[in-house]
Amino acid sequence: MAGLKRKDILGLKELSVAEIDLILNTADTLKDIATRPIKKVPTLRGKSLVTLFYENSTRTAKSFELAGKYLSADVINVSVSSSSVQKGETLKDTARNLEAMGVDAVVMRHAMGGAPQILAQHLHASVINAGDGMHEHPSQGLLDMLTIRQKKGGLSGLKVAIVGDSYHSRVARSNIYGLTKYGAEVWLAGPATMLPQGYEEYGVKVTTRVEEALEGADVVNVLRLQLERQGRGLFPSVAEYHKFWGVNERRLRLAKPDALLMHPGPMNRGVELSTSIADGNQSVILEQVTNGVAVRMALLYLLLGGGESA
């Protein structure tokens, strides 16, 4: 059986259903490694992985790091504040230097959409996009889909409500591209200043009324509110945001009784969602984190597990 016939994972938009199935199935199989006593398999022994983070992130970086280590790869973390990047090194030069050091894969997070594309063009090594600006965050989209699939048995025909600042959200975009490929019904809800244009052509429904999106939903995925957007005139206050778009118990009851509550983290408790539902029995937020490691292991295995291909 062939693996992924591609060098890089830059987004979900270009992946086929067959490729996504392969990744999710592989992730499902690898998941147990992270939960058993010996969290190691020798599969990627001798492979080197660099996480290159131009934007701060603890959880995604650590998740990739653990994924690599569970597979016995050598992992190095590079963050902007502590590297030649801050000395003004261009992306192209960074890529070339990594190549010269013999790195097998680079996991990159960057504030500008399209940056991983540039890196991928200049590297023979595999590039995994860990989030590029407002563009995509494929491993997050995949772990969200894996979580839904585990709990609901599939993705087709489900109503998935994504609540919050989807305009600025790469998580929302990756979810949209992934979920619509499987025939899920995706809704975006949030303040008008935070809704993207143009996704209606994917069949996505867009509303400023969160109740409309939550009605009968199978999945509620709540996005983090970036508080600094208040200073940029996108919403007036945390209190008003929570009042009109916060997912609280009353609003969650509009969804199906067995609806999943998801959040990419980190949460602002009491802002985009109330604390009681974050800890409630519909929340699968912690499963998302576990699945995150599994998905990232799957991506590394599928990209690096074989010999020299493409």
Binding site: G233, P236, A239, E240
Partner: peptide
């Protein structure tokens, strides 16, 4: 429209 009418942060229109 804006807090204090300073032209920076939005006022809580919904509330």
């Amino acid at each position: 429209i804006t807090k204090g009418s300073k032209g920076e942060e939005l006022a809580e229109m919904g509330e």
